[in-house]
Simulated scan of single mutants.
Amino acid sequence: MTNTPQAMLEAALRQMIREEVLAVLAEVEPVAPVAPVPPMRTYNGPRALTPAEVAEKTGFAAQTLANWRGLGKGPAFYKVGRLVRYDEVILDAWIAELRGGPTPKPHKNPTTPHN
């Protein structure tokens, strides 16, 4: 670095600014350290399946599931806003029930024989 008047002035200004900054920092109260953010909790409950996932798992078409929802048939579902979801545990129970065979339903007209 050359000792020109401009270089000497820049060095003097830098030193003055450095000293001024250090003086201001000495007056400022130290900031308490920020508490660490707790880790995100993970949800370990049953999965909420989409109709597409249920269709893949059961082999029934997504449209069939939609038709059943309208008719009140098929696996139990719930809505989150306009999104349809199926509880995985309840779906598995429904599938197990299907594998056990059809459940006989009482005849609607008691005067007609069941043959």
Rank of each mutant, 00 (worst) to 15 (best):
M1S: 15
M1I: 00
T2V: 00
N3T: 02
T4A: 06
A7G: 05
M8F: 02
L9K: 12
L13W: 05
M16L: 15
M16I: 03
M16A: 15
R18G: 08
V21R: 15
L22N: 14
L22V: 02
A23G: 14
V24E: 12
A26T: 03
E27Q: 15
E29M: 06
P30G: 11
P30W: 02
V31E: 10
V31A: 13
A32R: 13
P33M: 08
P33V: 01
V34R: 14
V34I: 09
A35I: 03
P36V: 07
M40H: 03
M40Y: 00
R41E: 08
R41P: 07
Y43A: 10
G45T: 00
A48N: 12
T50E: 03
A52E: 11
V54C: 09
K57E: 06
G59N: 06
F60V: 03
F60S: 05
A61H: 10
Q63S: 15
A66G: 10
A66D: 01
N67D: 09
L71E: 05
G72V: 00
K73A: 11
A76S: 14
Y78Q: 07
Y78G: 06
Y78I: 00
K79T: 13
K79A: 14
V80I: 13
G81C: 08
R82T: 08
L83R: 13
V84R: 04
R85L: 12
D87L: 02
D87A: 05
E88W: 04
I90L: 10
D92Q: 14
W94I: 02
W94H: 10
A96T: 04
L98I: 00
R99G: 04
G100N: 13
G100R: 14
K105F: 04
H107G: 15
P110S: 11
P110H: 11
T111E: 11
P113Q: 03
N115E: 13
N115D: 08
